[in-house]
């Protein structure tokens, strides 16, 4: 197995607030890893440090074996151009979709391919249509984002990320802003991706998704990996009190079986 993403001793602080306190994580090609944790646990920050939406305060990130940045006397230096290149190799999907409102669905998916990857118009269009097909929205290609439902917007955002041929996909609470009845279509798309062998790191509160789709679940607490393991074991029988509380909180108003 190849180590696709590796995070070594990652720290991130905002001012005096230490959000991440030394995270070590290795994700292998084809794996789906789910990050769980309560708000403020650092899970989103960890995700955003992997593609340098946030710059880590300390520690190293490796993509496909290559270290990101240059070590200058123990202090990491990152060139903006290198980080742009890195981000183009990592797909990211956000909670609030962030589709470009002035572009049609098709243009949204084509934009990065043309501006960043320098693909030709025709090629980018074909790629985009193929990805829209994949998320089941080919017939919406000429619509503007404002005409789509939340679930459709999020699937377009997924297609936009996929069209860049990313090596790994990051999902940052992508169903949290959706109406409950629209959550399913997005999770289904994500499961399909996982089954097709995409490497995925997902921050989510959907325990069912973690249970059925993830290969591995990490529970973050106060900036550290508190517990990790196979979803079936971890979600049914957590070892720590803290994780049990977290899971109980989610199951507070569960329907009776």
């Amino acid at each position: 197995m190849t180590e696709l993403v590796k995070v070594k001793n990652l720290h991130k602080s905002f001012g005096t607030l230490d959000v991440l306190k030394g995270i070590n994580l290795t994700v292998e090609a084809g794996e789906t890893v789910v990050l769980l944790g309560s708000s403020g646990s650092g899970k989103s920050t960890l995700l955003r440090c992997i593609n340098f939406m946030e710059t880590p305060t300390e520690g190293r990130v490796y993509l496909n074996g290559e270290a990101v940045g240059d070590d200058v006397n123990g202090k990491m230096r990152y060139k903006e151009a290198d980080l742009c290149k890195l981000r183009s190799r990592i797909g990211m999907v956000f909670q609030h979709f962030n589709l470009f409102p002035h572009m049609s669905v098709l243009q949204n998916v084509m934009e990065g391919q043309i501006t960043v990857l320098g693909r030709r118009q025709e090629e980018a269009k074909d790629k985009s249509m193929a990805q829209l097909q994949r998320v089941g929205l080919a017939e919406k290609a000429s619509e503007y984002p404002s005409r789509l439902s939340g679930g459709q917007k999020q699937r377009v955002a997924i297609a936009r990320a996929l069209a860049m041929d990313p090596e790994v996909m990051l999902f940052d609470e992508v169903t949290s802003a959706l109406d409950p009845e629209l959550v399913g279509e997005v999770l289904k798309t994500m499961r399909q991706l996982a089954e097709e062998g995409m490497t995925m790191i997902c921050v989510t509160h959907e325990l069912g998704f973690a249970y059925h789709v993830a290969n591995r679940v990490l529970f973050l607490n106060q900036g550290e990996i508190h517990e990790e393991g196979q979803p079936q074991a971890l979600l049914k029988t957590p070892k720590t009190q803290r994780m049990r509380e977290f899971l109980d909180g989610h199951a507070l108003f569960k329907l009776p079986e």
């Binding site: 593609n51 939406m53 903006e80 151009a81 742009c84 290149k85 890195l86 981000r87 183009s88 190799r89 990592i90 797909g91 990211m92 956000f94 962030n98 589709l99 470009f100 934009e111 990065g112 501006t115 960043v116 990857l117 955002a157 936009r160 990320a161 860049m164």
Partner: peptide, 10 residues
Amino acid sequence: EAGKAIGMSF
């Protein structure tokens, strides 16, 4: 963020 995430420069 969306621009940045697909690798666009400032």
